[in-house]
Simulated scan of single mutants.
Amino acid sequence: MKDLRHFIHTIESRPELDTPFTSCGVDNMQRVSHGEWSDDVLEVTAGLGEGIGGMVQAVRDRRTGIAMARKTIVTREGPLKQLVRELSMITTLAHVNIIHFYGAYMSPSSSEVKVVMELCEGKSLEAVGERIRRRKGRVGEKVARVLADGILQGLAYLHSKRLIHRDIKPSNILFTRQGVVKLCDFGVSGELVQSVAGTFTGTVGYMAPERVLGRDYSIRADVWSAGLSILELVQNRFPYPADISAFDLVLYISENPPPQLEDEPNLHARWSDAMKDFLRLALTVDPAQRPIPRDMLLHSWITKVSKHKVDMTRWIAEVWSWDHDSSSSSPMST
């Protein structure tokens, strides 16, 4: 515990990052010091959920008025090594598609660590997918392409830092109010050792075959997870059989051909050959044949992002009915 307190003190004393970032919900570029955080300067405005990683709340900095998210982790219940790993990593990252870290502090009782991050009002890809399914909508190909580009840009940045995320899944892909993709939750991330890793951490359903088989893996495993997440979103269903145990799911992933994007004529869902090929590459079973994020960004389907602009601010607003009538049509975006 003493080591953890010393580490957080070290974070607080660091100078701000040199790279500016765009804060969620704030139009202009913001620079915020990492230090001087406490319960006294943060006002809780809403609860955002609670999971294995800890409770998350929306907070407002009383000094600046900036809205942020705060994750509370009970240290005596969570693995300290994993917590220190996450904190040490996110303090070094600065990229438009990576969640921005403001700082961390310990509660007076020393039983909780509170991590202050960007508030992404567009919620997670998981929540967005559920919302669209409830409204009987579909995600269009142009939107899916922008989302895939954002995920891959974040992964390519992590790769440049010799990092693997290791838990890419819809709940760890967030959106700003402007529809910008942000990768979050680096609690199971780790450094690449000679470009491979060997631990079994993450969420089984989104793991690449080499991971569920316990083999060495690399950043290419994150490409598989990203492809599966996009496939789930556009097809409005999890790509694997529902209601099977984790053990049976491992067997299914390791023994069956990978899921593929298919047209659904009865739903008027037809996808381009380029998109199908992109997902086929992302879901290549042999990791040696699966491209790394940087190469996936060069795929012809992704390079069209710059040619076909999509108003992502409008799209995320339609998803959540911001400034729209709640009975408006389903968000079948372009």
Results as ranks from 00 to 15, higher is better:
residue 82 Q to F: 11
residue 109 S to P: 01
residue 92 T to D: 08
residue 104 A to D: 07
residue 111 S to N: 10
residue 106 M to R: 00
residue 106 M to H: 02
residue 101 F to T: 05
residue 79 P to V: 13
residue 93 L to P: 05
residue 106 M to W: 03
residue 96 V to Y: 06
residue 84 V to K: 14
residue 97 N to M: 10
residue 106 M to V: 12
residue 102 Y to P: 06
residue 83 L to D: 00
residue 104 A to C: 04
residue 87 L to Y: 00
residue 114 K to G: 02
residue 103 G to H: 04
residue 99 I to K: 01
residue 106 M to Q: 12
residue 110 S to A: 10
residue 89 M to A: 04
residue 108 P to N: 14
residue 115 V to M: 08
residue 102 Y to R: 10
residue 95 H to L: 02
residue 81 K to Y: 04
residue 111 S to P: 00
residue 86 E to Q: 08
residue 112 E to T: 12
residue 90 I to N: 02
residue 102 Y to W: 12
residue 97 N to F: 07
residue 82 Q to H: 10
residue 112 E to V: 06
residue 112 E to G: 00
residue 81 K to G: 04
residue 82 Q to N: 08
residue 114 K to N: 14
residue 113 V to M: 02
residue 88 S to D: 15
residue 94 A to S: 13
residue 85 R to P: 00
residue 90 I to T: 10
residue 115 V to K: 00
residue 112 E to R: 04
residue 113 V to I: 13
residue 103 G to V: 00
residue 105 Y to T: 15
residue 108 P to H: 05
residue 115 V to A: 09
residue 105 Y to G: 07
residue 84 V to E: 08
residue 109 S to Q: 12
residue 85 R to D: 12
residue 83 L to C: 14
residue 80 L to I: 14
residue 100 H to A: 12
residue 96 V to H: 15
residue 110 S to L: 11
residue 79 P to Q: 13
residue 105 Y to D: 09
residue 107 S to H: 08
residue 103 G to Y: 01
residue 99 I to D: 00
residue 83 L to P: 03
residue 116 V to H: 04
residue 101 F to A: 03
residue 95 H to W: 09
residue 88 S to L: 04
residue 106 M to K: 01
residue 95 H to E: 06
residue 112 E to H: 14
residue 81 K to C: 09
residue 100 H to L: 01
residue 92 T to I: 00
residue 114 K to T: 13
residue 113 V to E: 00
residue 82 Q to V: 04
residue 101 F to K: 06
residue 87 L to M: 13
residue 104 A to R: 01
residue 116 V to A: 13
residue 99 I to T: 11
residue 85 R to V: 03
residue 84 V to M: 15
residue 93 L to K: 07
residue 98 I to R: 09
residue 82 Q to R: 08
residue 91 T to S: 05
residue 115 V to F: 03
residue 99 I to C: 02
residue 103 G to F: 02
residue 86 E to K: 11
residue 79 P to N: 15
residue 93 L to Q: 05
residue 91 T to Y: 01
residue 98 I to P: 03
residue 88 S to Y: 05
residue 80 L to W: 00
residue 110 S to F: 09
residue 112 E to N: 11
residue 91 T to N: 07
residue 111 S to Q: 09
residue 108 P to A: 12
residue 85 R to A: 14
residue 92 T to C: 03
residue 85 R to C: 10
residue 99 I to L: 11
residue 82 Q to M: 06
residue 81 K to H: 10
residue 82 Q to G: 06
residue 86 E to L: 07
residue 90 I to K: 04
residue 89 M to T: 15
residue 98 I to E: 00
residue 113 V to N: 01
